[in-house]
Design a protein around this nucleic acid. Structure first.
Lengths: 156, 156
DNA sequence: GAGTGGCTGGGCATTGTGCGCAGTTTAGGC
DNA sequence: GCCTAAACTGCGCACAATGCCCAGCCACTC
């Protein structure tokens, strides 16, 4: 779907002020309330806005350690099957099939560096995983920053 | 901060139904409205809920390609400086300092595989970047899945 | 020239919110 | 076992926001 500057401005408003109401947004943007409603509905149903939900921060409830984990899996198992198995481990936050040397890449959280070993063991314990190598995130400069891209796509 | 089952159930409700109101949630959970309000306020101010904003999906507005990029940077530059430079490229969605062979890891989006080259060139054009190697995400099985972890932390 | 789709500005009933309150339950320290 | 503080409850009230209408206006296309 194509988005325009108004769409991007709407998303920016609702991103920066979580207590923003549609009415207030329409006032700030100087457009009719129905327009903001319509734009939001359109973006939600087209998937441009994928989710609009409270994002729990593992950092804030006892899981300050994050690592990326490259996995090589046994040829006999499909990627989907392995992904399902990994989904049963709550510490696994993200799983992608990737190109390159390894087959899957996972993002995992842990309570500490020592605890990370437990998590990695759980990952490896999945029968299909043959080898895993991980890098620990020392510092997150930014993440989940999709707004600039949306604005670029809107021609802003 | 420590969270309990009620916190997790509240987050789950608001995650699964984006049109959920505090009042409706209190009815479903059979607790007082003020309790749900208080829990949400507490989680928001303590950072357990980091953000609660519309999440634009690059996929849905013309950027279906995602790649992870490991960067080695020149010794003369600090990580923060490089991260700032990368932040000026809208296609860079995420930047971490990591342990291991490389210094930084970035997550980037692009319009196509061909377009990815343009983005990677822009990343490399940052003076500080010495070397970059990237893996392309072929399939995302799941991502941003923090709810199970929250529920695990809640003792659920 | 007619049709289409988006935006406007308005109204209206319903619902949710923010806020305050007093009374009750719960949890932890002593 | 008791006490205190914190959390939860159930309630009411004024106000704000929502969902849902509508007719009118534009710009664009066929």
């Amino acid at each position: 779907m194509k988005v325009d500057r108004l769409d991007a401005r709407i998303v920016r408003l609702f991103t920066e002020e979580q207590r923003m109401s549609v009415l207030e947004a329409s006032r700030l943007l100087k457009v009719a309330r129905a327009t903001v409603q319509a734009r939001l509905d359109r973006m939600l149903s087209s998937g441009v806005i994928g989710r609009w939900a409270p994002q729990p921060e593992p950092r804030a409830f006892g899981f300050p350690v994050v690592a990326y984990c490259s996995l090589t899996i046994h040829q006999d198992f499909g990627h989907d099957v392995v992904a399902e198995a990994l989904a049963r481990i709550p510490e696994v936050l993200e799983v992608h099939t990737v190109s390159g040397d390894s087959d899957l890449m996972a993002r995992v959280a842990a309570r500490s560096n020592a605890d990370l070993q437990r998590v990695l063991d759980a990952v490896t314990a999945t029968k299909a995983v043959v080898r895993s190598s991980s890098v620990i995130v020392l510092n997150t400069h930014f993440e989940g920053r999709t707004l600039p891209l949306l604005e670029a796509a809107a021609g802003d």
